[in-house]
Nucleic acid binder design. Sequence first.
DNA 1: CTGAAAGCGCTAACAA
DNA 2: TTGTTAGCGCTTTCAG
Lengths: 355, 355
Amino acid sequence: MKRSPKPVKSETPAKIDIRDVAARAGVSIATVSRAINRVPTVDPVLAERVWAAAAELNYFPNTQARALVSGKSKLLGLIVSEITNPFFPELIQEFERVAVERGYEILIASTNYDRKRMEQCARRMLERKVDGVAVMTFGIEDFLFERFAEDQIPVVFIDAAPERPMSSVLAVDYRVGINEGVQHLAGLAHRKIGFITGPLRLRSAAARKAAFLSSLKSAGIKADPTWIVEGEHTLESGRDAMVKILALRERPTAMMCSNDMTAIGVQHALFEAKLRVPEDFSLIGFDDIHLAEYTIPPLTTVRMSCKDLALKAVSALVAHLQLKNLPADAGEMIPTRLIVRQTTGAPKAGKKAKR
Amino acid sequence: MKRSPKPVKSETPAKIDIRDVAARAGVSIATVSRAINRVPTVDPVLAERVWAAAAELNYFPNTQARALVSGKSKLLGLIVSEITNPFFPELIQEFERVAVERGYEILIASTNYDRKRMEQCARRMLERKVDGVAVMTFGIEDFLFERFAEDQIPVVFIDAAPERPMSSVLAVDYRVGINEGVQHLAGLAHRKIGFITGPLRLRSAAARKAAFLSSLKSAGIKADPTWIVEGEHTLESGRDAMVKILALRERPTAMMCSNDMTAIGVQHALFEAKLRVPEDFSLIGFDDIHLAEYTIPPLTTVRMSCKDLALKAVSALVAHLQLKNLPADAGEMIPTRLIVRQTTGAPKAGKKAKR
DNA sequence: CTGAAAGCGCTAACAA
DNA sequence: TTGTTAGCGCTTTCAG
């Protein structure tokens, strides 16, 4: 039986490992491992000694080694579409909090709505052997995640997910909040309401648009297609879309937007066009990012709780990890609701007085 | 329906590993390893075979195993103070881009200005065995990073760093941009200029304040301490600070802020107080986040390039990693400069006409 | 230039 | 309960 040769003098900080702890505590490495991992069958006295030794040596386990043998990396992937959209940092913050709380580290990647990058993200997650992934891009390219299914890695999606084991969906109830928005506008006597969508290949963007259309219908307002324009969920696209709409012969009196960034872009366009909000024009966003309270004037918007989203995402993942088999989907829907602030008001009198 | 009755058989791709590739290519695992890692001494023919086999099997190396044996995790840590401050996502995005480009994955943690969390962050980084860390919190608690020095893990700080091997500093030249701001205001005939600082225990916040004070002096303007209030680099603190200032008997005619979020908070307070910008009040931010162009009115601010910051941070880290020893600090300073938009104008006439 | 073999630090059978 | 031992998948001497 061999012994590893005595390491060089005490010069080097000499990477403390499990053996050092074992030696100091006078037990075997197996016992150290068990004590560290809080296996209940360890003699409390020994456990105590191990803990003390570990503390004195300032020891902590090598994650890589642990991951290699156990097969669990204790890493959760989080894929977002665009980290510079403030909605996502809020989501990330919460996700991180919950994940760390449950003993996971998180690996973030952003796709920037780019197909190539999405592929790369999936790959990076696979390479790092994440234990689970939350795909918070609001829906694209599911097929990229086939490999995850093969590897039995749980994935949580938003809005809709491929039928596959180990994957679940967080369903957002866009209807309610968006309908409240339309009703609010209608109550203010708006009849000409436009909508700036997100990228329509994203399921969530399509869903928001659909919710808008159906709300309009149930309010008895007819949709004017020229007032519905596709944006990209960015400041720029919001501004550009609004500029286009302002150039129309007949303008709407109010707009709803697929997210808050778009709405802020719209506010900017309105500002440039010297139109006052809400006197000349009403505006409703979506997401209720923290900033929405601080725009000028403060933005009326539909709130979707990113805390909820983050919490449910992590929970779903961890659930899958623990009870290996099947919870199919993640319970009730994520609610949305209107938050009225100051970008909505009655439309300008300048026309036939509606009732 | 319970679990699928059919237990998967030979169908399963059964975790492809280096051995499978070796077998398929008809070489030893050592050769596979070398080929994959592009060791130049491999027979091109064999290398080709290995590559082909790897591709066919859709193989990629297990990062954990690789990390375990090689000692390099190919992970770079990134510690930021507050991910919900839009400055940081912009920084992160760039950091991620550059890091991935150079073959590193990134581990993000945010401290929320909290001492405890900072400690936890450092620990998480250590546990995950990052190859290097960028501490972009603009300066606190250096001592937490002693362990990194012991473990020979390079660390890059902003503004100032402890004298230690394997660590470097990214120095920001706050002076220039802030001075331009003060000059700009002075040129507009403002004499009563206030400043909302960041948390002063942060070096960068202190540095910005100092830069403001010295700029004021060189403009021949005397600083009024009641117009200088400490904030926390957040929307709320900006608003609150401004509310306090507006309650003063004698008000300033212009404010500079330690960051853009603060300035946006100030805009909000001004809006609530029915003061117009820039007619009644001038305002300058700091950072030039993307959003600054979209506030109403668009924010005049001092730009600090986060792309620069990110690029230099990664570069410094990678440099340390490659040439094991000592480049001490990271070259020239990060510049700052004034971006004039629409929140600055001449103060209300109610005064002696300057010049 | 290639292959056999020795671990990296840890967990998990299996013994004791 | 605790210790012994066999790997986890890979890189890296060290012979051939």
